[in-house]
Amino acid sequence: MMAISTFSNQRALQKYNTRDTISAYALVGPSLVLLICLLIGPSLAVFAISVTNWQFGAQSFSFIGLQNFRELFDDRVFLSSLSNTFIYVAVVVPSVLGLGLFVALAIESRKEFQAFYRAVHFLPVMATLAAMAIAWEALLHPTIGLVTRLAVQLGLGSWNFLHDPRLVLATLCVIGVWQHLGYAMVLFLAGLKAIPSDLYQAAEIDGVDHPLDRLRYVTLPMLGPVIMFLLIVITLKALETFDTVAVLTQGGPENASELLLHTLYVESFQFFRTGYGAAMTVVFLLIVIAIIFLQAKVLDKRVHYS
Protein backbone atom coordinates (compact mmCIF):
# COMPACT_ATOMS: atom_id res chain seq x y z
CA MET A 1 0.00 0.00 0.00
CA MET A 2 2.72 2.34 1.13
CA ALA A 3 4.89 1.57 -1.87
CA ILE A 4 2.06 2.14 -4.31
CA SER A 5 1.16 5.52 -2.89
CA THR A 6 4.79 6.64 -2.99
CA PHE A 7 4.98 5.46 -6.58
CA SER A 8 1.89 7.40 -7.64
CA ASN A 9 3.22 10.44 -5.75
CA GLN A 10 6.40 10.16 -7.76
CA ARG A 11 4.40 10.07 -10.97
CA ALA A 12 2.43 13.15 -9.99
CA LEU A 13 5.59 14.96 -9.03
CA GLN A 14 7.22 14.09 -12.35
CA LYS A 15 4.21 15.42 -14.20
CA TYR A 16 4.43 18.69 -12.32
CA ASN A 17 8.12 18.96 -13.04
CA THR A 18 7.57 18.40 -16.77
CA ARG A 19 4.86 21.02 -16.76
CA ASP A 20 7.23 23.48 -15.04
CA THR A 21 9.90 22.84 -17.66
CA ILE A 22 7.46 23.41 -20.50
CA SER A 23 6.16 26.66 -19.07
CA ALA A 24 9.72 27.84 -18.46
CA TYR A 25 10.56 27.37 -22.14
CA ALA A 26 7.29 28.98 -23.16
CA LEU A 27 8.14 32.05 -21.10
CA VAL A 28 11.70 32.34 -22.37
CA GLY A 29 10.68 31.59 -25.95
CA PRO A 30 9.42 34.95 -27.23
CA SER A 31 12.43 36.91 -26.03
CA LEU A 32 14.75 34.21 -27.35
CA VAL A 33 13.16 34.49 -30.80
CA LEU A 34 13.44 38.27 -30.73
CA LEU A 35 17.04 38.08 -29.55
CA ILE A 36 17.94 35.77 -32.44
CA CYS A 37 16.07 37.81 -35.05
CA LEU A 38 17.16 41.25 -33.95
CA LEU A 39 20.57 40.77 -32.41
CA ILE A 40 22.36 37.52 -32.99
CA GLY A 41 21.15 37.05 -36.59
CA PRO A 42 22.16 40.50 -37.84
CA SER A 43 25.50 40.26 -36.03
CA LEU A 44 26.27 36.95 -37.74
CA ALA A 45 25.17 38.50 -41.06
CA VAL A 46 27.60 41.37 -40.53
CA PHE A 47 30.40 38.92 -39.81
CA ALA A 48 29.49 37.03 -42.99
CA ILE A 49 29.32 40.15 -45.17
CA SER A 50 32.61 41.44 -43.79
CA VAL A 51 34.52 38.65 -45.54
CA THR A 52 32.95 39.42 -48.94
CA ASN A 53 33.34 42.20 -51.47
CA TRP A 54 29.59 42.79 -51.67
CA GLN A 55 28.48 46.24 -52.70
CA PHE A 56 25.01 47.40 -51.82
CA GLY A 57 22.65 46.56 -54.72
CA ALA A 58 25.20 44.37 -56.52
CA GLN A 59 23.95 41.13 -58.10
CA SER A 60 26.92 39.04 -57.09
CA PHE A 61 29.74 39.01 -54.63
CA SER A 62 32.59 36.74 -53.77
CA PHE A 63 34.40 35.58 -50.68
CA ILE A 64 37.59 37.55 -50.20
CA GLY A 65 38.70 36.41 -46.75
CA LEU A 66 40.32 39.01 -44.57
CA GLN A 67 41.03 41.34 -47.51
CA ASN A 68 38.63 43.99 -46.13
CA PHE A 69 40.34 43.96 -42.75
CA ARG A 70 43.80 44.28 -44.31
CA GLU A 71 42.58 47.23 -46.30
CA LEU A 72 41.08 48.81 -43.20
CA PHE A 73 44.40 49.14 -41.46
CA ASP A 74 45.94 50.87 -44.51
CA ASP A 75 42.97 53.24 -44.77
CA ARG A 76 44.03 56.70 -43.55
CA VAL A 77 40.42 57.79 -43.02
CA PHE A 78 39.62 54.74 -40.92
CA LEU A 79 42.79 55.05 -38.87
CA SER A 80 42.23 58.72 -38.06
CA SER A 81 38.56 57.92 -37.37
CA LEU A 82 39.69 55.21 -34.95
CA SER A 83 42.10 57.46 -33.11
CA ASN A 84 39.58 60.34 -33.07
CA THR A 85 37.01 58.01 -31.54
CA PHE A 86 39.42 56.93 -28.83
CA ILE A 87 40.30 60.53 -28.04
CA TYR A 88 36.63 61.48 -28.03
CA VAL A 89 35.72 58.68 -25.59
CA ALA A 90 38.76 59.36 -23.43
CA VAL A 91 37.77 63.02 -23.08
CA VAL A 92 33.98 62.80 -22.93
CA VAL A 93 33.53 59.90 -20.49
CA PRO A 94 35.68 61.20 -17.60
CA SER A 95 34.43 64.75 -18.16
CA VAL A 96 30.79 63.69 -18.08
CA LEU A 97 31.31 61.62 -14.94
CA GLY A 98 33.38 64.26 -13.17
CA LEU A 99 31.20 67.22 -14.09
CA GLY A 100 28.01 65.22 -13.58
CA LEU A 101 29.06 64.35 -10.04
CA PHE A 102 30.14 67.93 -9.41
CA VAL A 103 26.82 69.36 -10.61
CA ALA A 104 24.86 66.73 -8.68
CA LEU A 105 26.76 67.51 -5.48
CA ALA A 106 26.27 71.23 -6.03
CA ILE A 107 22.53 70.83 -6.58
CA GLU A 108 22.19 68.46 -3.65
CA SER A 109 24.01 70.80 -1.27
CA ARG A 110 21.50 73.61 -1.76
CA LYS A 111 17.80 73.29 -1.14
CA GLU A 112 16.76 76.24 -3.32
CA PHE A 113 15.87 75.87 -7.01
CA GLN A 114 16.77 72.17 -7.01
CA ALA A 115 14.05 71.29 -9.50
CA PHE A 116 15.00 74.18 -11.76
CA TYR A 117 18.68 73.26 -11.93
CA ARG A 118 17.82 69.61 -12.43
CA ALA A 119 15.54 70.48 -15.36
CA VAL A 120 18.05 72.85 -16.97
CA HIS A 121 20.82 70.29 -16.87
CA PHE A 122 18.57 67.50 -18.04
CA LEU A 123 17.21 69.42 -21.03
CA PRO A 124 19.91 68.34 -23.52
CA VAL A 125 19.15 64.69 -22.76
CA MET A 126 15.51 65.09 -23.76
CA ALA A 127 16.08 67.34 -26.76
CA THR A 128 16.64 65.89 -30.22
CA LEU A 129 20.34 66.12 -30.80
CA ALA A 130 20.05 66.73 -34.55
CA ALA A 131 18.00 69.86 -33.82
CA MET A 132 20.30 70.89 -31.01
CA ALA A 133 23.27 70.46 -33.31
CA ILE A 134 21.84 73.15 -35.57
CA ALA A 135 21.58 75.44 -32.55
CA TRP A 136 25.22 74.69 -31.81
CA GLU A 137 26.12 75.44 -35.40
CA ALA A 138 24.48 78.85 -35.08
CA LEU A 139 26.31 79.53 -31.82
CA LEU A 140 29.67 78.51 -33.25
CA HIS A 141 29.32 80.12 -36.69
CA PRO A 142 32.72 81.69 -37.61
CA THR A 143 31.29 85.18 -38.29
CA ILE A 144 27.85 85.54 -36.73
CA GLY A 145 27.97 82.86 -34.01
CA LEU A 146 27.37 84.08 -30.47
CA VAL A 147 30.29 82.18 -28.97
CA THR A 148 32.67 83.32 -31.71
CA ARG A 149 31.61 86.96 -31.35
CA LEU A 150 31.95 86.71 -27.58
CA ALA A 151 35.50 85.42 -28.02
CA VAL A 152 36.30 88.35 -30.29
CA GLN A 153 34.73 90.83 -27.87
CA LEU A 154 36.76 89.42 -25.01
CA GLY A 155 39.91 89.85 -27.05
CA LEU A 156 40.51 86.12 -27.40
CA GLY A 157 40.81 86.40 -31.16
CA SER A 158 38.72 84.88 -33.88
CA TRP A 159 38.03 81.16 -33.72
CA ASN A 160 36.61 78.82 -36.26
CA PHE A 161 35.42 76.08 -33.98
CA LEU A 162 33.90 73.74 -36.56
CA HIS A 163 36.26 74.24 -39.47
CA ASP A 164 39.66 74.38 -37.88
CA PRO A 165 41.16 70.85 -37.91
CA ARG A 166 42.93 71.58 -34.63
CA LEU A 167 39.72 72.66 -32.91
CA VAL A 168 36.94 70.62 -34.39
CA LEU A 169 37.38 67.45 -32.31
CA ALA A 170 37.63 69.45 -29.12
CA THR A 171 34.43 71.27 -30.07
CA LEU A 172 32.65 67.98 -30.66
CA CYS A 173 33.92 66.78 -27.29
CA VAL A 174 32.43 69.82 -25.56
CA ILE A 175 29.09 69.24 -27.28
CA GLY A 176 29.28 65.57 -26.29
CA VAL A 177 29.87 66.47 -22.65
CA TRP A 178 26.99 68.96 -22.77
CA GLN A 179 24.77 66.29 -24.25
CA HIS A 180 25.38 63.57 -21.66
CA LEU A 181 25.96 65.66 -18.55
CA GLY A 182 22.29 65.80 -17.54
CA TYR A 183 21.90 62.04 -17.72
CA ALA A 184 24.88 61.47 -15.45
CA MET A 185 23.69 64.21 -13.12
CA VAL A 186 20.22 62.73 -12.70
CA LEU A 187 21.61 59.29 -11.89
CA PHE A 188 24.14 60.76 -9.48
CA LEU A 189 21.37 62.73 -7.76
CA ALA A 190 19.35 59.56 -7.32
CA GLY A 191 22.46 57.79 -6.03
CA LEU A 192 23.20 60.58 -3.56
CA LYS A 193 19.66 60.49 -2.22
CA ALA A 194 20.06 56.79 -1.50
CA ILE A 195 23.04 57.32 0.81
CA PRO A 196 21.74 57.13 4.38
CA SER A 197 22.49 60.25 6.40
CA ASP A 198 23.53 58.00 9.30
CA LEU A 199 26.60 57.11 7.33
CA TYR A 200 27.71 60.73 6.98
CA GLN A 201 27.09 61.30 10.67
CA ALA A 202 29.01 58.21 11.70
CA ALA A 203 31.81 59.41 9.44
CA GLU A 204 31.73 62.84 11.02
CA ILE A 205 32.21 61.34 14.47
CA ASP A 206 34.92 59.03 13.14
CA GLY A 207 36.81 62.10 12.00
CA VAL A 208 35.84 62.15 8.32
CA ASP A 209 34.73 65.77 8.19
CA HIS A 210 36.75 67.38 5.41
CA PRO A 211 34.60 67.55 2.25
CA LEU A 212 37.25 65.70 0.23
CA ASP A 213 37.53 62.99 2.85
CA ARG A 214 33.76 62.67 2.89
CA LEU A 215 33.82 62.25 -0.86
CA ARG A 216 36.52 59.62 -0.69
CA TYR A 217 35.36 57.58 2.31
CA VAL A 218 31.58 57.80 1.97
CA THR A 219 30.16 59.36 -1.19
CA LEU A 220 32.25 57.75 -3.93
CA PRO A 221 32.16 54.21 -2.54
CA MET A 222 28.42 54.47 -2.00
CA LEU A 223 28.01 55.71 -5.58
CA GLY A 224 30.06 52.77 -6.88
CA PRO A 225 27.22 50.99 -8.67
CA VAL A 226 26.03 54.26 -10.25
CA ILE A 227 29.54 55.12 -11.42
CA MET A 228 29.95 51.64 -12.84
CA PHE A 229 26.67 51.87 -14.72
CA LEU A 230 27.37 55.37 -16.03
CA LEU A 231 30.85 54.45 -17.12
CA ILE A 232 29.51 51.70 -19.34
CA VAL A 233 26.51 53.61 -20.64
CA ILE A 234 28.37 56.86 -21.34
CA THR A 235 31.21 54.95 -22.99
CA LEU A 236 28.68 53.26 -25.27
CA LYS A 237 26.95 56.54 -26.03
CA ALA A 238 30.25 58.25 -26.77
CA LEU A 239 31.34 55.40 -29.03
CA GLU A 240 28.20 55.67 -31.07
CA THR A 241 28.26 59.45 -31.51
CA PHE A 242 26.88 60.16 -34.94
CA ASP A 243 24.38 63.03 -35.08
CA THR A 244 26.78 65.85 -34.25
CA VAL A 245 29.30 64.68 -36.81
CA ALA A 246 26.67 64.16 -39.50
CA VAL A 247 24.97 67.51 -38.94
CA LEU A 248 27.89 69.76 -38.06
CA THR A 249 31.07 68.57 -39.78
CA GLN A 250 30.52 65.46 -41.92
CA GLY A 251 33.84 64.30 -40.55
CA GLY A 252 35.82 67.24 -41.92
CA PRO A 253 37.94 69.18 -42.19
CA GLU A 254 40.70 66.75 -43.23
CA ASN A 255 38.96 63.87 -41.41
CA ALA A 256 39.76 65.67 -38.15
CA SER A 257 36.26 65.02 -36.79
CA GLU A 258 35.70 61.60 -38.37
CA LEU A 259 34.23 59.26 -35.73
CA LEU A 260 33.80 55.52 -36.26
CA LEU A 261 30.06 55.39 -36.60
CA HIS A 262 30.05 58.21 -39.15
CA THR A 263 32.87 56.66 -41.19
CA LEU A 264 31.05 53.38 -41.14
CA TYR A 265 27.86 55.03 -42.34
CA VAL A 266 29.65 56.88 -45.15
CA GLU A 267 31.38 53.72 -46.39
CA SER A 268 28.25 51.59 -46.23
CA PHE A 269 25.51 53.91 -47.31
CA GLN A 270 27.17 56.66 -49.32
CA PHE A 271 29.90 54.70 -51.08
CA PHE A 272 27.79 51.50 -50.89
CA ARG A 273 30.87 49.43 -49.99
CA THR A 274 28.80 47.17 -47.81
CA GLY A 275 31.44 44.46 -47.33
CA TYR A 276 34.04 47.01 -46.30
CA GLY A 277 31.53 48.75 -44.00
CA ALA A 278 30.69 45.41 -42.43
CA ALA A 279 34.37 44.80 -41.69
CA MET A 280 34.47 48.19 -40.00
CA THR A 281 31.39 47.26 -38.01
CA VAL A 282 33.07 44.08 -36.86
CA VAL A 283 36.07 46.07 -35.62
CA PHE A 284 33.70 48.54 -33.94
CA LEU A 285 31.81 45.69 -32.25
CA LEU A 286 35.00 44.09 -31.01
CA ILE A 287 36.17 47.42 -29.55
CA VAL A 288 32.84 47.93 -27.79
CA ILE A 289 32.84 44.43 -26.37
CA ALA A 290 36.48 44.70 -25.29
CA ILE A 291 35.97 48.00 -23.50
CA ILE A 292 32.81 46.91 -21.70
CA PHE A 293 34.37 43.61 -20.74
CA LEU A 294 37.46 45.33 -19.40
CA GLN A 295 35.46 47.84 -17.37
CA ALA A 296 33.20 45.18 -15.94
CA LYS A 297 36.12 42.92 -15.12
CA VAL A 298 38.30 45.54 -13.47
CA LEU A 299 35.66 47.62 -11.76
CA ASP A 300 33.09 45.11 -10.70
CA LYS A 301 35.47 43.73 -8.12
CA ARG A 302 35.92 47.13 -6.54
CA VAL A 303 32.28 48.17 -6.57
CA HIS A 304 30.13 47.49 -3.57
CA TYR A 305 26.55 46.46 -4.25
CA SER A 306 24.36 46.58 -1.21
Partner: peptide, 21 residues
Amino acid sequence: VRPKMRNVAMVFQSYALYPYM
Protein backbone atom coordinates in the same frame (compact mmCIF):
# COMPACT_ATOMS: atom_id res chain seq x y z
CA VAL B 1 33.56 71.99 18.93
CA ARG B 2 33.18 69.65 15.97
CA PRO B 3 31.97 66.09 16.69
CA LYS B 4 35.34 64.47 16.07
CA MET B 5 37.04 66.76 18.59
CA ARG B 6 34.52 66.08 21.36
CA ASN B 7 36.05 62.68 22.06
CA VAL B 8 32.71 60.95 21.96
CA ALA B 9 31.84 57.81 20.06
CA MET B 10 28.41 56.96 18.83
CA VAL B 11 26.64 53.72 17.99
CA PHE B 12 23.67 54.14 15.69
CA GLN B 13 20.44 52.21 15.51
CA SER B 14 21.25 51.25 11.93
CA TYR B 15 24.88 50.60 13.00
CA ALA B 16 25.88 52.95 10.13
CA LEU B 17 28.76 50.67 9.14
CA TYR B 18 30.48 51.49 5.86
CA PRO B 19 29.08 48.69 3.70
CA TYR B 20 32.00 48.72 1.26
CA MET B 21 34.62 48.26 3.95
